[in-house]
Write a protein that binds this DNA or RNA. Structure first.
Lengths: 110, 110
DNA sequence: CTACCATGCCTAATCATTCTAGGTATCATC
DNA sequence: GATGATACCTAGAATGATTAGGCATGGTAG
């Protein structure tokens, strides 16, 4: 029962979504697979987490959405990172780095 | 305006508390300062987060508590890591490492 | 002696975010 | 005709952290 999947922590999902969209516009369903692929199959976002998160993120102006047609010919809502979303991603990445550093310090502490 | 404090993420607090107690028994109030010190002043746990967390953690059998007298001569509840708590800490650290790795992969992904 | 600050504990209410567990519809494949 | 993949969505529960208090003791500054 080797555990290779990593559980998400509350607060990281927005960063992951923004990161996925930083590689280019994508529809919601695709964001899930892109995150899975980018993370080397380690991260798995549930639909029930994703769609509400996308809604939140759009409300905050970090992405725009537009109905288009996907690669498979189906209707799909494509999300594009805005300039504010790019800034937000940078901030979240910086915050993540601070936390990782702080916890690394905890680890070494005697 | 350099930002050096790191914000906690939901789910990391238990690990921090267990880690602090892995250096030896301590009362609640002291856990806060030990975490601050171990993290190089980067992590600051609020009392309103700490005490409920300690309660949870004790319910789960990860720590024992005993009323004793602190260095300053006051009554204080001292928490000691149990064997199960040690195991839990190991698991949470492993889980943290997986998440950090997964997000690092996301970062490199093109 | 009184005010304040540090030490030490605790709780209630709120908030934010994620997960569970559904539901809908289309299209391809078996 | 059933199943599975693609694609969207929501309601409700659970989790956990924060805010904003409260209480008590003891030391120190004024």
């Amino acid at each position: 029962m080797t555990q290779h999947k990593a559980d998400l922590l509350q607060g990281t999902l927005d960063m992951l979504i923004l990161k996925a969209l930083s590689l280019g516009p994508l529809h919601g369903y695709g964001v899930i697979s892109r995150i899975r692929q980018m993370s080397g199959e380690m991260l798995d976002v549930e639909q029930g987490s994703l769609y509400p998160a996308l809604y939140r993120i759009e409300q905050r102006g970090w992405v725009n959405s537009k109905w288009e047609v996907s690669e498979t010919g189906r209707r799909a809502k494509f999300y594009t990172l805005t300039r504010a979303g790019r800034r937000q991603l940078d901030e979240e990445e910086a915050g993540w780095d601070r936390l990782v550093l702080a916890i690394a310090k905890m680890r070494q502490a005697t």
